[in-house]
Write a protein that binds this DNA or RNA. Structure first.
Lengths: 143, 143
DNA sequence: GTGACTGCAAATCATTTGCAACTCG
DNA sequence: CGAGTTGCAAATGATTTGCAGTCAC
C-alpha cells in the first residue's frame, strides 16, 4: 500500500488528481524521468493536463524533498526521481543513448571525512558514471 | 608557456582570435564557467564577439575533448572547464550562491572495481558535493 | 583562393509565469 | 466558501541555426 494521501497531508499540500497520478508514475519507474515524459503518460489519464502544471508540481515536490532533481548531461533537461522510499544510489549513464542504471553509493563515510576538511555544511552529493552500454557497444561493432 | 597553437593545430582547427581568447580565459579560471561569463570577458578584447560564436567554439572544444561540460544544478546552465592540463577533480558546490570549490577525487580504484561488475564500457565520472558555504551560513545567521 | 569561421538575426527548446477559472478540504 | 491548484497562453532564458560576409592558412 502506498500512502500517497498521508505523504501529501504531512507536507500540507492538496491531494489533487494530477499530483496523485504524477506520484504514481514516479513510483513505477526506476530511472529518473523528464517532465515531458511524465506529461505524456499523464495525458492518458487526464486529457487536459498541462506540461506547465507538471513542472509546477515537480518543483513543489522537489521543494518538499519528495523528489530529487538529477542533472542530465547529454541534453539539457532536468530529470526527476523519488527521493523517499528509495535507497540512496547513483547512476551509470550511457553517453550514446542516455540509458541509466542505478548504482550503489561508493562514498560511504566520505562525507564525514569531508566535514572535517571544509567549512561547508555538507548536505548531499551526486555521482554520475559515464560509459557506453552493452547495446550501444554492439551497435557500433556491427557497423 | 602555453602551446595554444600546437593544441589547435593538433586537432586540425584554426587558431582564430576568438578561440585564442576563450582558451586564455579558460586557462585562468579555477572554476567551471558559463558561456555567458566567457562572453562578457571576451567583449573587452573583441568588441564584436557574439555569444552564439562562443557557444559554437565551446562545443567545438568539447567535441575535441579540450574542455569538459559540467552540469550546474541550481540554474539550468552548462558550465565548462579545461579537461587538459588540469588534474582530475570534482566540486563542492554551495546550493545558495553557486560558489564552487575543487575537491580531490575520492573514487580512486572505484572505476576498476566497477568495470568488473558491469558490461558498460566506463569512460568517465562526475561527482558533485552539495552544501552551504561559510559565507552563506554567516548570512543566514545574521538575519 | 577557398573552406573554415564569424557576426548577426531569427529560431528552437525547456522551463516559468500571469491570470482567470476551478476544485479540494 | 476561499485559498491552493490548474488550464491556457504568453514570456523568458539558454542554446542553436541559417546565411552571407570575412579571415586563416
Amino acid at each position: 500500500m502506498t500512502k500517497i494521501n498521508e505523504i501529501f497531508k504531512e507536507h500540507g499540500i492538496r491531494l489533487t488528481q494530477q499530483r496523485k497520478e504524477i506520484f504514481k508514475i514516479l513510483l513505477n519507474i526506476s530511472q529518473p524521468v523528464s517532465a515531458n515524459y511524465i506529461h505524456n503518460l499523464l495525458k492518458n489519464k487526464l486529457e487536459k493536463s498541462r506540461l506547465s502544471t507538471v513542472y509546477r508540481n515537480l518543483n513543489t515536490f522537489k521543494d518538499l524533498g519528495i523528489i530529487k532533481e538529477v542533472s542530465s548531461v547529454n541534453n539539457n533537461k532536468k530529470l526527476y526521481e523519488l527521493s523517499i522510499g528509495s535507497n540512496h544510489h547513483h547512476h551509470l549513464i550511457c553517453t550514446k543513448c542516455g540509458e541509466m542504471e542505478p548504482l550503489d553509493c561508493p562514498l560511504e563515510g566520505y562525507e564525514d571525512e569531508l566535514k572535517k576538511k571544509t567549512d561547508y555544511k555538507i548536505i548531499d552529493h551526486s555521482i554520475n558514471i559515464y560509459g557506453i552500454c552493452p547495446d550501444c557497444i554492439n551497435k557500433t561493432q556491427k557497423k
